[in-house]
Every structure is written in C-alpha cells, then in structure tokens.
C-alpha cells in the first residue's frame, strides 16, 4: 500500500522533467539572478552576493527564520526540563 503511494509519487515527480530546464544552462533569458548579480555590488558594496541577498534583498525571510529558530529552542528547552527529578515533572492537571 505504501509502496504504491511511493511509486505514484515517483512517477508524478518524474513527469515534471519535461518542464525543468537542462542541467547547466541558465533558466530563462531574463532570470532574476542575472539582474541581481549586475546590481548587487553597486548597491550594497559587499563582495559576497549570497550574504547581500539573504540580509538585503530578502531580509524579511531572515527575520521569520530567526523567529522560528528562537521558538524551536524555547520548545526544546521546555520539553527537556520536564524530565524526572525536576520541579514540575508531574502531569497532573488541576
């Protein structure tokens, strides 16, 4: 049953190979990476184009990802502090 699902998913993913570009040629003629590469060093004066994309052109995604990391650390620490021998390790709800 699960093998049938996996096989169907593999065929469905394989059908998308008709619309992916060949491996090594650029995507379209005016893809956005080219316009960012021509513009990034003039505007941000940073040598590393990937860092200037992560913190400059796409700064909101970095803000959201920092929030996700913060919440995950909080959840992990709270889960680990409820082990046996802690102060609040009983599951009684009152």
């Amino acid at each position: 049953m699960v093998l049938l699902i996996m096989f169907t998913l593999f065929i469905y993913l394989g059908l998308s190979l008709y619309s992916i570009h060949t491996f090594g040629q650029p995507m379209k003629d005016g893809y956005i990476g080219l316009s960012i590469l021509n513009d990034a060093i003039q505007r941000t004066h940073a040598s590393n184009v990937v860092t200037s994309i992560v913190f400059g052109y796409r700064g909101y995604d970095t803000l959201g990802e920092a929030t996700i990391f913060f919440v995950a650390v909080l959840g992990f620490y709270w889960t680990m502090s409820r082990m046996k021998g802690g102060k609040d390790s009983d599951d009684s709800s009152r």
Partner: peptide, 23 residues
C-alpha cells in the same frame, strides 16, 4: 557566475531543518 538566489533559499531551509530535527 552561478545563480545566487537558490543558494540563499537553501541557507534558510537548512536552519529550519535543524530546528525541526532537534524538536
């Protein structure tokens, strides 16, 4: 030069995968 936009997206994705695996 290679395309820098998917590399920036992968950076964010790897950090989120770290948080998911740890939880």
């Amino acid at each position: 030069a290679s395309d820098p936009v998917p590399q920036a997206l992968t950076l964010t994705s790897i950090v989120i995968d770290i948080a998911l695996t740890a939880l």
